[in-house]
Design a protein around this nucleic acid. Sequence first.
DNA 1: CTGAAAGCGCTAACAC
DNA 2: GTGTTAGCGCTTTCAG
Lengths: 350, 350
Amino acid sequence: MNRRTTIDDVAKLANVHKATVSRALNTLTEHQVSSETAKRIKRAARQLGYVPNVMARGLRTSLSMTIGVIIPDLTNPFFPPVIRGIENFLQPRGYTALLANTDGHDAIEVAAFESLLERRVDGFIFATGRHGDQTVVARAFEANVLAVMLNREAESIPYPLVTGNDASGIAAAVNHLVELGHREILHIAGPFNLSTSVVRSEAFTTSCDSIRGVRGRVIEAASLSIEAGQRSMDDVLAENGMRPTAVIGGNDLLALGALRSMKSHGLRCPEDVSVIGFNDMIFAEDFAPPLTTVRVPTFDMGTESARLLLRSIEAGVQEQVRITLPVSLIVRSSTGPVSGGSAVDFPTSL
Amino acid sequence: MNRRTTIDDVAKLANVHKATVSRALNTLTEHQVSSETAKRIKRAARQLGYVPNVMARGLRTSLSMTIGVIIPDLTNPFFPPVIRGIENFLQPRGYTALLANTDGHDAIEVAAFESLLERRVDGFIFATGRHGDQTVVARAFEANVLAVMLNREAESIPYPLVTGNDASGIAAAVNHLVELGHREILHIAGPFNLSTSVVRSEAFTTSCDSIRGVRGRVIEAASLSIEAGQRSMDDVLAENGMRPTAVIGGNDLLALGALRSMKSHGLRCPEDVSVIGFNDMIFAEDFAPPLTTVRVPTFDMGTESARLLLRSIEAGVQEQVRITLPVSLIVRSSTGPVSGGSAVDFPTSL
DNA sequence: CTGAAAGCGCTAACAC
DNA sequence: GTGTTAGCGCTTTCAG
């Protein structure tokens, strides 16, 4: 990677000062230079294959034109569409996203945060909000760093928040189950140090309580993973109390775990137990059975958070908004009429 | 985001020259400064919350400590583990990856490439190799840019290549099917302008030809997507010639598409037709039925390509290696004995 | 409309 | 061991 051509090279070839080159090549200042010289300069630039050096520019303007995106794990299928949404907004505006995974570890999160600060990112998108203020989010806020929260909120830290409408999604899921005749419903919630888990489980309890005869039960999973969902469902099935006829996972992964647990216990879905997920992640329709779930506009959440952040950056001041995007229930084959009850195809006596 | 403290601030507080601060804070030059002053400097730095500015450093050293990673689509589950593998190698070495998606469009690819050049990335990882030299890869090579190819090769451009052992994976898949009694095997290949598609389909033909009585047929899908796989399988099923009893997808997505097509035609898997995928992407085990597939070490491919690239960067010269990682056949439930024939539960005459 | 000069924050070469 | 000096490549006053 040999020495690249600089603005001075272009200046020399075009017989102007480098300042003029700078003006000519920047859309915002292009009008300050006569269209003839501008043309000459551009030709020279093209001829030399000139590519401006963003680092040098950033040093001068103290704008890096990058933003840091901190997520738990790219491998979680929730995130790729979010990232694409973010980039979709950033790219045409000349910004670039710097990605960092934390795997949920505080130490890694701190390291990632600092590494992004070294790169002088102009702002952050945090998709890692947790409760308990020791997190990086709190440090960022104290340090006056511009940021927006995506999906999850950080307790008491007033960064803007972009989420799906969790409460309405859960309500739709509960209603769907109730219409199918279910009365004993289990919610396998994500860890309660995540705001989404709290919001969803509260919405779950509220929804169940508001419908006569419906009993909702909440169990907290250790993490938002298939394994944790499976373990939670195993625990429930090991009890010899009353079994739920339906379960709502705090996300699709937990629902998938529940499905695996049921399979290992010889329970069929939806004949024995109906299952609903949350997010409608990729492949949700290809599972066995295709998963009924709440679709969350992940791409749009990315776009919106990027939009919000750039607005803050341009204004130079932190906004305090809250954007809640609509969600929708996608009914597939993992939910069916309760057995022992109202259904036609499954006349039963359980 | 107020003005950050600079090296000069630290120098003033520690009563030394900024050059000394620079030395003290850099592990490679730390020994050049007395441990006492070093300690004092570090204390001052911590006290002020000093974070070095990599843009300034990069301008000086003409190293950005970033590398560009160009992929078709992050949303394709093949890539997230690759990216994590790359970052896993880069991060402890102070490097950061800049990601860009092309969606397979040349124009976007060019734009992404230039935007990364502006950021003065120290090298590239291309996961977009195609045949036909008009691509960015060719331009990069001509411009003496350091890079490595991941998974796919760019025709005649001698960048290092990191792949899985496609040929052995396909051979294992074919053998597995033959052992199950299959004799009419279909390969739904990816587009032939991708080197992986060519390698795999050639391996397929070779494998089939080498076994007496086995007839292999190759059909080229329009893209590496579920939809393309479904369409290809639809086409085959619409013919009234001899039907294959097994199909090998060029990747898991194509296999999944075949599965969908079969379902819509009332064909069962594996009873009517066995299906094998390639990559063992996430959730392959959760499909209906759980997919037999060739596991490719995606994370390691990321790691290895990053290692190769950094080595080139440090050497300052392009290497010419080729790393082929071992793959393994993961047998699940989408493959079974050929119907109408041969197995033990299905007694055989193979 | 264009040129000259200064400086963003840092490191590397050279002094002492 | 530490200070001095000189830029890296760019934008932005300020003159003219």
